Amino acid sequence: MINKELVEAALKIREQAYVPYSKFQVGAALLTKSGKVYTGCNIENAAYPVTCCAERVAIFKAISEGETEFQELAVAADSARPVPPCGSCRQVMSEFFPKTMNIHLTNLKNETKTFTMEELLPFSFETHDMPENG
């Protein structure tokens, strides 16, 4: 079931995006197991590689406040289809989200699709894939 309040929070925060280059505003809202919602918007930079996506902003804000257990994420943008997270965001999400966590993707046409983390990034690289450090 779609968490409409979380989707609304993602739509609202996207208005704060700093996107002078792409003009592509993205918002994200992350619900923690404690019930708190952390939001993020994309923040661009003239040096594109240091740009940070909305999803990672929300995740990093939550982690920096001591939250490590997450329940749901919503991502919103003015896209042709419900906005898919980029590969970098999917990898960060896979580090912190349970495989069964719901991720709601939406656009400004009220089209929403919900995926689990595992559906978004099957066979992801995980910590147990690295050799143990002696």
Rank of each mutant, 00 (worst) to 15 (best):
K109L: 09
F60N: 04
P84W: 13
E67I: 08
E118C: 08
N45C: 12
C52F: 08
L108V: 06
P84K: 12
I103Q: 03
F96T: 07
R81P: 01
F96S: 10
T114D: 00
N42C: 10
T68R: 12
K61G: 05
P98K: 15
N3F: 05
P131M: 15
V37I: 12
E95Q: 14
G35A: 15
I13V: 15
K61N: 09
E55P: 00
K36I: 10
R14F: 01
Q91S: 15
T68E: 11
A10N: 09
K36A: 06
T32F: 03
Q71L: 12
A17K: 02
A54Q: 07
E126T: 14
L6E: 02
Y18G: 04
K12R: 07
F24S: 05
E44A: 08
Q16W: 09
E132S: 14
K23L: 10
G35I: 11
H104F: 15
T32A: 04
L120S: 09
S79G: 02
N42Y: 06
H128S: 06
M1P: 11
I103L: 11
M117D: 11
A17I: 04
K109T: 00
V83W: 07
L31V: 05
L105N: 10
L108W: 13
E111F: 13
K12C: 01
M117T: 15
T127P: 00
N42R: 03
V75W: 04
R90L: 15
A47D: 12
K12A: 02
A62L: 08
A77W: 06
N45F: 14
T112C: 09
S34V: 10
K23M: 05
T68S: 13
G35L: 15
P85F: 14
E65W: 10
V19C: 12
C53E: 14
